[in-house]
Computed example of a mutant assay.
Amino acid sequence: MPLTPLDIHNKEFGRRLRGYDEDEVNEFLDQVIKDYESVIRENKDLSNQIFNMQEKLDHFSNIEETLSKTIIVAQEAADEVKHNAKKEAQLILKEAEKNADRIVNDSIVKSRKIALEVDELKKQAAIYRARFRTLVEAQLDLLNQDGWEALEKRNEMLAEREREAKEVYTERV
C-alpha cells in the first residue's frame, strides 16, 4: 500500500547517539509531505482529466459510429431511389412506345380505309361518266333519227351501255 502524506507526517524515527539533526529531518519531511501531496493532487487531476477525456472520446466514437450508420443508410436509400427511378423511366418508355405503336397502327388503318373510299369513289365516278355518256349519245342519236324505231334502238342501246358500265364496274371491284 502506498504511503500517504499522513504516514510521512506521523513517521517517528528512533533516536541514537550521533543521529541526524531532528529539526533538519523534520524540515525535510515537511518538504517531502508537501511535494508528495502535490504529486497526489496532480495525479488525481490527471486521472480526472483522463476520465473526462475518455468520456469525450466515447461520446465522439458514438457520434462517429452513428454518422457512419447514417451515411450507409442514406447511401442505401439513394441507391434505392435511383433504382426505382430507373424502373419508372423504363415503364414510362415502354408505355410511350406502346402509345406510339397504337397511334401508328391507327393511322395505317385510317389511311387504308381512306384509300378504299377513294377507290370506291373513282369507280362510282367512272360508272356515272359512262352512264352520262350513254345518255348524251342516246339523246344525240334521238336528235339525228326520227320516229319510233329510233326510240326502240335508243332503249336497246341504253340497255347495252348500262350492261357495259356494270361490267366495267364489276371488273374494277
Results as ranks from 00 to 15, higher is better:
residue 112 R to C: 12
residue 20 Y to F: 14
residue 60 F to H: 10
residue 142 L to I: 11
residue 76 E to M: 01
residue 154 R to D: 14
residue 19 G to Y: 04
residue 27 E to S: 14
residue 5 P to F: 03
residue 163 R to C: 10
residue 128 Y to W: 13
residue 122 K to V: 12
residue 74 A to H: 11
residue 11 K to H: 15
residue 39 V to N: 08
residue 103 I to G: 10
residue 68 S to A: 09
residue 164 E to F: 06
residue 145 Q to T: 14
residue 166 K to T: 06
residue 56 K to A: 08
residue 45 D to H: 11
residue 105 N to R: 10
residue 77 A to W: 04
residue 31 Q to G: 12
residue 86 K to P: 02
residue 144 N to A: 13
residue 18 R to Y: 13
residue 171 E to A: 03
residue 142 L to C: 11
residue 91 L to V: 09
residue 69 K to D: 05
residue 94 K to S: 06
residue 25 V to N: 03
residue 59 H to T: 04
residue 118 V to E: 03
residue 77 A to F: 05
residue 61 S to Y: 00
residue 118 V to Q: 00
residue 76 E to V: 08
residue 50 I to A: 07
residue 41 R to V: 12
residue 161 R to M: 08
residue 72 I to P: 00
residue 156 E to I: 00
residue 101 D to G: 09
residue 86 K to S: 09
residue 62 N to A: 05
residue 102 R to K: 11
residue 109 V to T: 08
residue 115 A to P: 06
residue 18 R to S: 13
residue 160 E to S: 14
residue 120 E to T: 06
residue 155 N to R: 14
residue 113 K to F: 14
residue 83 H to Q: 15
residue 134 T to F: 12
residue 167 E to K: 13
residue 47 S to D: 09
residue 14 G to E: 14
residue 61 S to L: 08
residue 147 G to S: 01
residue 83 H to N: 15
residue 19 G to H: 05
residue 43 N to A: 07
residue 165 A to E: 01
residue 98 K to T: 04
residue 138 A to N: 04
residue 83 H to D: 13
residue 45 D to P: 04
residue 68 S to Q: 08
residue 100 A to L: 12
residue 160 E to W: 12
residue 156 E to V: 02
residue 133 R to N: 15
residue 136 V to G: 13
residue 100 A to Q: 09
residue 45 D to Y: 10
residue 159 A to H: 13
residue 6 L to G: 05
residue 30 D to P: 08
residue 168 V to L: 15
residue 33 I to V: 03
residue 163 R to F: 09
residue 28 F to T: 06
residue 127 I to P: 01
residue 171 E to H: 04
residue 114 I to N: 13
residue 72 I to Q: 03
residue 94 K to I: 06
residue 43 N to H: 08
residue 65 E to M: 02
residue 60 F to M: 10
residue 39 V to D: 03
residue 150 A to S: 04
residue 114 I to S: 14
residue 112 R to P: 03
residue 53 M to Q: 13
residue 25 V to R: 00
residue 9 H to M: 00
residue 1 M to D: 07
residue 140 L to Q: 15
residue 81 V to F: 10
residue 1 M to A: 10
residue 157 M to E: 14
residue 123 K to S: 02
residue 126 A to I: 07
residue 124 Q to M: 12
residue 24 E to K: 02
residue 73 V to G: 02
residue 116 L to F: 04
residue 75 Q to K: 08
residue 18 R to I: 07
residue 100 A to S: 10
residue 19 G to R: 02
residue 95 E to V: 10
residue 58 D to M: 06
residue 62 N to Q: 08
residue 155 N to V: 04
residue 63 I to T: 06
residue 108 I to H: 03
residue 172 R to L: 05
residue 127 I to N: 09
residue 7 D to H: 07
